[in-house]
Protein backbone atom coordinates (compact mmCIF):
# COMPACT_ATOMS: atom_id res chain seq x y z
CA UNK A 1 0.00 0.00 0.00
CA UNK A 2 2.76 2.40 0.84
CA UNK A 3 5.05 1.47 -1.99
CA UNK A 4 4.38 4.79 -3.64
CA UNK A 5 6.16 6.88 -1.05
CA UNK A 6 9.66 5.47 -1.26
CA UNK A 7 9.68 5.93 -5.03
CA UNK A 8 9.80 9.67 -4.65
CA UNK A 9 12.71 9.32 -2.30
CA UNK A 10 15.90 8.23 -4.04
CA UNK A 11 15.81 10.94 -6.71
CA UNK A 12 14.83 13.64 -4.30
CA UNK A 13 17.40 12.66 -1.78
CA UNK A 14 20.23 12.71 -4.24
CA UNK A 15 18.97 16.02 -5.60
CA UNK A 16 18.84 17.59 -2.18
CA UNK A 17 22.17 16.09 -1.31
CA UNK A 18 23.67 17.69 -4.35
CA UNK A 19 22.42 21.03 -3.17
CA UNK A 20 23.56 20.63 0.37
CA UNK A 21 26.96 19.26 -0.50
CA UNK A 22 27.62 21.87 -3.13
CA UNK A 23 28.92 24.60 -0.81
CA UNK A 24 31.36 22.11 0.63
CA UNK A 25 33.00 21.43 -2.71
CA UNK A 26 35.89 23.96 -2.62
CA UNK A 27 36.91 22.75 0.79
CA UNK A 28 36.91 19.20 -0.41
CA UNK A 29 39.52 20.05 -2.99
CA UNK A 30 41.83 21.10 -0.24
CA UNK A 31 41.34 18.13 2.01
CA UNK A 32 39.67 14.85 1.17
CA UNK A 33 37.39 13.83 3.97
CA UNK A 34 35.39 10.67 4.47
CA UNK A 35 32.20 12.66 4.23
CA UNK A 36 33.39 14.13 0.94
CA UNK A 37 34.09 10.70 -0.47
CA UNK A 38 30.66 9.57 0.52
CA UNK A 39 29.02 12.62 -0.99
CA UNK A 40 30.91 12.16 -4.26
CA UNK A 41 29.99 8.51 -4.39
CA UNK A 42 26.35 9.37 -4.00
CA UNK A 43 26.38 11.98 -6.76
CA UNK A 44 28.23 9.90 -9.35
CA UNK A 45 26.31 8.98 -12.51
CA UNK A 46 26.49 5.30 -11.60
CA UNK A 47 24.84 5.95 -8.28
CA UNK A 48 22.15 7.96 -10.05
CA UNK A 49 21.57 5.07 -12.41
CA UNK A 50 21.26 2.65 -9.53
CA UNK A 51 18.86 5.05 -7.82
CA UNK A 52 16.74 5.26 -10.94
CA UNK A 53 16.70 1.46 -11.33
CA UNK A 54 15.67 1.02 -7.70
CA UNK A 55 13.00 3.65 -8.11
CA UNK A 56 11.57 1.91 -11.18
CA UNK A 57 11.64 -1.52 -9.55
CA UNK A 58 9.99 -0.07 -6.49
CA UNK A 59 7.24 1.57 -8.50
CA UNK A 60 6.27 -1.40 -10.66
CA UNK A 61 4.06 -3.12 -8.06
CA UNK A 62 2.27 0.15 -7.39
CA UNK A 63 1.68 0.69 -11.09
CA UNK A 64 0.43 -2.88 -11.34
CA UNK A 65 -1.95 -2.28 -8.47
CA UNK A 66 -3.11 0.95 -10.09
CA UNK A 67 -3.77 -0.69 -13.45
CA UNK A 68 -5.50 -3.61 -11.73
CA UNK A 69 -7.87 -1.28 -9.92
CA UNK A 70 -9.36 -0.28 -13.29
CA UNK A 71 -9.85 -3.80 -14.65
CA UNK A 72 -13.03 -5.86 -14.54
CA UNK A 73 -13.48 -8.65 -12.01
CA UNK A 74 -13.03 -11.53 -14.43
CA UNK A 75 -9.93 -9.95 -16.00
CA UNK A 76 -8.35 -9.44 -12.58
CA UNK A 77 -8.97 -13.04 -11.62
CA UNK A 78 -7.98 -14.66 -14.87
CA UNK A 79 -4.95 -12.72 -16.17
CA UNK A 80 -2.08 -10.49 -15.09
CA UNK A 81 -2.36 -6.71 -15.16
CA UNK A 82 0.34 -6.38 -17.84
CA UNK A 83 -1.85 -8.23 -20.33
CA UNK A 84 -4.36 -5.39 -20.11
CA UNK A 85 -2.08 -3.22 -22.26
CA UNK A 86 -2.93 -5.52 -25.17
CA UNK A 87 -6.58 -4.48 -24.96
CA UNK A 88 -6.54 -0.80 -24.06
CA UNK A 89 -9.99 0.62 -23.54
CA UNK A 90 -11.14 -2.31 -21.43
CA UNK A 91 -10.85 -0.28 -18.28
CA UNK A 92 -13.73 0.33 -15.94
CA UNK A 93 -14.50 2.35 -12.83
CA UNK A 94 -16.73 -0.40 -11.44
CA UNK A 95 -14.29 -1.37 -8.70
CA UNK A 96 -14.19 2.18 -7.39
CA UNK A 97 -17.96 2.51 -7.56
CA UNK A 98 -18.37 -0.72 -5.62
CA UNK A 99 -15.69 0.09 -3.07
CA UNK A 100 -17.14 3.54 -2.46
CA UNK A 101 -20.74 2.40 -2.23
CA UNK A 102 -21.86 2.18 1.34
CA UNK A 103 -24.21 -0.20 3.08
CA UNK A 104 -25.85 0.10 6.46
CA UNK A 105 -22.92 -1.71 8.04
CA UNK A 106 -20.02 -0.10 6.24
CA UNK A 107 -19.67 3.47 5.12
CA UNK A 108 -16.47 4.79 3.64
CA UNK A 109 -17.06 8.42 4.62
CA UNK A 110 -17.60 7.39 8.22
CA UNK A 111 -14.45 5.25 8.02
CA UNK A 112 -12.42 8.20 6.71
CA UNK A 113 -13.66 10.45 9.51
CA UNK A 114 -12.87 7.75 12.08
CA UNK A 115 -9.35 7.40 10.74
CA UNK A 116 -8.79 11.15 10.97
CA UNK A 117 -10.19 11.19 14.50
CA UNK A 118 -7.77 8.41 15.43
CA UNK A 119 -4.77 9.79 13.57
CA UNK A 120 -4.58 13.44 14.61
CA UNK A 121 -4.31 12.96 18.39
CA UNK A 122 -2.17 9.87 17.86
CA UNK A 123 0.35 12.04 15.98
CA UNK A 124 0.19 15.21 18.09
CA UNK A 125 0.35 13.53 21.49
CA UNK A 126 3.61 11.60 21.05
CA UNK A 127 5.30 14.57 19.37
CA UNK A 128 4.40 16.87 22.21
CA UNK A 129 5.39 14.47 24.96
CA UNK A 130 8.54 13.33 23.16
CA UNK A 131 9.81 16.86 22.53
CA UNK A 132 9.35 17.71 26.20
CA UNK A 133 11.20 14.55 27.20
CA UNK A 134 13.88 15.19 24.59
CA UNK A 135 14.46 18.66 25.98
CA UNK A 136 15.01 17.25 29.43
CA UNK A 137 17.35 14.56 28.14
CA UNK A 138 19.30 17.03 26.03
CA UNK A 139 19.58 20.16 28.14
CA UNK A 140 18.65 19.54 31.75
CA UNK A 141 21.42 17.72 33.61
CA UNK A 142 20.12 15.35 36.26
CA UNK A 143 21.60 12.22 37.83
CA UNK A 144 21.12 9.04 35.82
CA UNK A 145 20.15 10.96 32.71
CA UNK A 146 22.16 8.91 30.26
CA UNK A 147 21.09 5.60 31.75
CA UNK A 148 17.46 6.65 31.60
CA UNK A 149 17.85 7.79 28.02
CA UNK A 150 19.36 4.47 27.01
CA UNK A 151 16.50 2.70 28.82
CA UNK A 152 13.90 4.75 26.93
CA UNK A 153 15.55 4.06 23.64
CA UNK A 154 15.92 0.38 24.47
CA UNK A 155 12.12 0.15 24.67
CA UNK A 156 12.25 0.56 20.93
CA UNK A 157 13.30 -3.09 20.73
CA UNK A 158 10.15 -4.38 22.44
CA UNK A 159 7.65 -5.48 19.79
CA UNK A 160 4.26 -3.91 20.35
CA UNK A 161 2.46 -7.23 19.83
CA UNK A 162 3.52 -8.55 23.22
CA UNK A 163 1.97 -5.52 24.91
CA UNK A 164 -1.48 -5.93 23.35
CA UNK A 165 -3.15 -8.22 25.86
CA UNK A 166 -1.72 -6.62 29.05
CA UNK A 167 -2.54 -3.12 27.77
CA UNK A 168 -6.07 -4.14 26.88
CA UNK A 169 -6.43 -5.62 30.34
CA UNK A 170 -5.29 -2.34 31.91
CA UNK A 171 -7.62 -0.22 29.78
CA UNK A 172 -10.64 -2.41 30.39
CA UNK A 173 -10.22 -3.52 33.98
CA UNK A 174 -8.06 -0.83 35.62
CA UNK A 175 -8.83 2.39 33.77
CA UNK A 176 -12.33 1.60 32.56
CA UNK A 177 -11.81 3.00 29.05
CA UNK A 178 -12.88 -0.21 27.38
CA UNK A 179 -12.93 -0.03 23.62
CA UNK A 180 -12.73 3.71 23.07
CA UNK A 181 -10.69 6.25 21.16
CA UNK A 182 -8.72 6.94 24.33
CA UNK A 183 -7.35 3.40 24.27
CA UNK A 184 -6.16 3.79 20.67
CA UNK A 185 -4.67 7.25 21.16
CA UNK A 186 -2.82 6.20 24.28
CA UNK A 187 -1.55 3.00 22.70
CA UNK A 188 -0.23 4.73 19.61
CA UNK A 189 1.41 7.32 21.85
CA UNK A 190 3.02 4.67 24.00
CA UNK A 191 4.34 2.73 21.02
CA UNK A 192 5.68 5.87 19.34
CA UNK A 193 7.42 7.55 22.26
CA UNK A 194 10.80 5.74 22.30
CA UNK A 195 11.60 6.49 18.68
CA UNK A 196 10.16 10.01 18.86
CA UNK A 197 12.18 10.85 21.95
CA UNK A 198 15.34 9.49 20.38
CA UNK A 199 14.94 11.35 17.07
CA UNK A 200 14.00 14.69 18.58
CA UNK A 201 16.68 14.39 21.27
CA UNK A 202 19.38 13.85 18.67
CA UNK A 203 18.20 16.84 16.72
CA UNK A 204 17.99 19.01 19.81
CA UNK A 205 21.47 18.02 20.95
CA UNK A 206 22.86 19.41 17.68
CA UNK A 207 21.67 22.92 18.46
CA UNK A 208 24.40 25.20 19.84
CA UNK A 209 24.43 25.40 23.64
CA UNK A 210 25.22 29.11 23.42
CA UNK A 211 21.64 29.65 22.33
CA UNK A 212 20.31 28.27 25.58
CA UNK A 213 22.94 30.07 27.65
CA UNK A 214 22.16 33.39 26.01
CA UNK A 215 18.48 32.90 26.68
CA UNK A 216 19.15 32.01 30.28
CA UNK A 217 21.29 35.14 30.73
CA UNK A 218 18.31 37.13 29.47
CA UNK A 219 16.22 35.57 32.21
CA UNK A 220 14.37 32.83 30.31
CA UNK A 221 13.31 29.69 32.22
CA UNK A 222 13.02 26.18 30.80
CA UNK A 223 9.47 26.77 29.64
CA UNK A 224 10.32 29.94 27.74
CA UNK A 225 13.41 28.38 26.20
CA UNK A 226 11.46 25.37 25.08
CA UNK A 227 8.50 27.17 23.56
CA UNK A 228 10.13 30.38 22.27
CA UNK A 229 13.52 29.21 21.11
CA UNK A 230 13.63 25.44 20.60
CA UNK A 231 10.23 24.63 19.23
CA UNK A 232 10.58 26.90 16.14
CA UNK A 233 14.00 25.39 15.45
CA UNK A 234 12.66 21.85 15.81
CA UNK A 235 10.18 22.13 12.95
CA UNK A 236 12.08 19.88 10.48
CA UNK A 237 12.59 17.13 13.05
CA UNK A 238 9.00 17.30 14.21
CA UNK A 239 7.71 17.29 10.66
CA UNK A 240 9.90 14.32 9.74
CA UNK A 241 8.74 12.31 12.69
CA UNK A 242 5.19 13.55 12.18
CA UNK A 243 5.10 12.04 8.71
CA UNK A 244 6.44 8.72 9.99
CA UNK A 245 3.87 8.59 12.74
CA UNK A 246 1.06 9.80 10.49
CA UNK A 247 1.71 7.06 7.92
CA UNK A 248 2.04 4.43 10.60
CA UNK A 249 -1.20 5.33 12.33
CA UNK A 250 -3.08 5.85 9.08
CA UNK A 251 -2.10 2.41 7.82
CA UNK A 252 -2.49 0.68 11.16
CA UNK A 253 -4.99 -2.15 11.36
CA UNK A 254 -3.80 -4.15 14.35
CA UNK A 255 -3.85 -1.53 17.11
CA UNK A 256 -7.28 -0.21 16.20
CA UNK A 257 -8.72 -3.68 15.84
CA UNK A 258 -7.50 -4.70 19.26
CA UNK A 259 -8.27 -1.56 21.22
CA UNK A 260 -11.19 -0.09 19.33
CA UNK A 261 -12.90 -2.99 17.61
CA UNK A 262 -14.44 -2.99 14.17
CA UNK A 263 -17.97 -1.68 14.68
CA UNK A 264 -18.87 0.67 11.81
CA UNK A 265 -19.27 3.74 14.03
CA UNK A 266 -15.61 3.64 15.13
CA UNK A 267 -13.78 1.48 12.57
CA UNK A 268 -11.00 3.22 10.63
CA UNK A 269 -10.45 2.99 6.89
CA UNK A 270 -8.06 0.03 7.20
CA UNK A 271 -10.80 -2.07 8.78
CA UNK A 272 -13.16 -0.97 6.01
CA UNK A 273 -10.65 -2.01 3.33
CA UNK A 274 -9.94 -5.32 5.01
CA UNK A 275 -13.66 -6.07 5.10
CA UNK A 276 -14.11 -5.14 1.42
CA UNK A 277 -13.06 -8.59 0.27
CA UNK A 278 -16.02 -10.24 1.96
CA UNK A 279 -16.17 -13.00 4.57
CA UNK A 280 -14.38 -15.59 2.45
CA UNK A 281 -12.34 -13.23 0.31
CA UNK A 282 -14.63 -13.66 -2.68
CA UNK A 283 -14.45 -9.95 -3.56
CA UNK A 284 -10.68 -9.53 -3.30
CA UNK A 285 -10.64 -7.84 -6.70
CA UNK A 286 -11.97 -4.73 -4.92
CA UNK A 287 -8.85 -4.46 -2.78
CA UNK A 288 -6.74 -2.66 -5.38
CA UNK A 289 -9.35 0.08 -5.69
CA UNK A 290 -9.72 0.20 -1.92
CA UNK A 291 -5.97 0.54 -1.49
CA UNK A 292 -5.86 3.56 -3.76
CA UNK A 293 -8.77 5.21 -2.02
CA UNK A 294 -7.06 4.89 1.34
CA UNK A 295 -3.70 5.93 -0.14
CA UNK A 296 -4.89 9.34 -1.35
CA UNK A 297 -4.54 11.17 1.94
CA UNK A 298 -1.13 9.79 3.02
CA UNK A 299 0.33 10.50 -0.41
CA UNK A 300 -1.01 14.06 -0.30
CA UNK A 301 0.41 14.58 3.16
CA UNK A 302 3.74 13.14 2.14
CA UNK A 303 4.03 15.26 -0.98
CA UNK A 304 3.01 18.34 1.00
CA UNK A 305 5.56 17.78 3.76
CA UNK A 306 8.30 16.19 1.66
CA UNK A 307 10.57 19.22 2.03
CA UNK A 308 10.64 18.79 5.80
CA UNK A 309 11.00 15.07 5.54
CA UNK A 310 14.22 15.24 3.56
CA UNK A 311 15.55 18.11 5.64
CA UNK A 312 14.78 16.19 8.80
CA UNK A 313 16.62 13.12 7.51
CA UNK A 314 19.64 15.16 6.53
CA UNK A 315 19.61 17.07 9.80
CA UNK A 316 19.96 13.86 11.74
CA UNK A 317 22.27 12.03 9.38
CA UNK A 318 25.00 14.31 8.00
CA UNK A 319 26.89 15.88 10.80
CA UNK A 320 30.49 17.04 10.95
Amino acid sequence: MSTLEPTALPDKVSEEMEQTTHPGRPRRRRRRSAAGDAARAVTSPWASLVAVVIAVLWTIPTIGLFVTSFRSQLDIQRSGWWTSFLHPGDYTLDNYTQALSSTSTSNIVQAFINTIVITLPAVVLPIFLASLAAYAFAWIPFPGRDALFVAVFALQIVPLQIALVPLLDIYVNKLGFGASYWSVWLSHTIFALPLATFLIHNFMKELPGELMEAARVDGAGHVTIFFRILLPLLTPAIAAFGIFQFLWVWNDLLVSLVFLGGTPDVAPITVFIAALAGSRGSAWYLLSAGAFISMVVPVAVFLGLQRYFVRGLLAGGLKG
Binding site: L164, L167, L168, V172, L257, V258, T263, A274, A275, S279
Partner: peptide, 21 residues
Amino acid sequence: IKYEGSKEFEAQLPVRVQGGN
Protein backbone atom coordinates in the same frame (compact mmCIF):
# COMPACT_ATOMS: atom_id res chain seq x y z
CA ILE B 1 -28.06 -6.28 19.14
CA LYS B 2 -24.73 -4.64 18.37
CA TYR B 3 -23.12 -6.54 15.52
CA GLU B 4 -19.45 -6.53 14.64
CA GLY B 5 -17.93 -8.58 11.84
CA SER B 6 -14.19 -8.84 11.29
CA LYS B 7 -11.99 -10.73 8.87
CA GLU B 8 -9.42 -10.96 11.65
CA PHE B 9 -11.95 -12.61 13.95
CA GLU B 10 -9.96 -15.76 14.67
CA ALA B 11 -6.84 -13.84 15.65
CA GLN B 12 -8.68 -11.08 17.51
CA LEU B 13 -11.10 -13.13 19.59
CA PRO B 14 -8.46 -14.75 21.83
CA VAL B 15 -6.81 -11.34 22.36
CA ARG B 16 -10.09 -9.76 23.40
CA VAL B 17 -11.07 -12.62 25.64
CA GLN B 18 -7.70 -12.62 27.41
CA GLY B 19 -7.70 -8.84 27.64
CA GLY B 20 -11.04 -8.88 29.42
CA ASN B 21 -12.85 -7.23 26.52
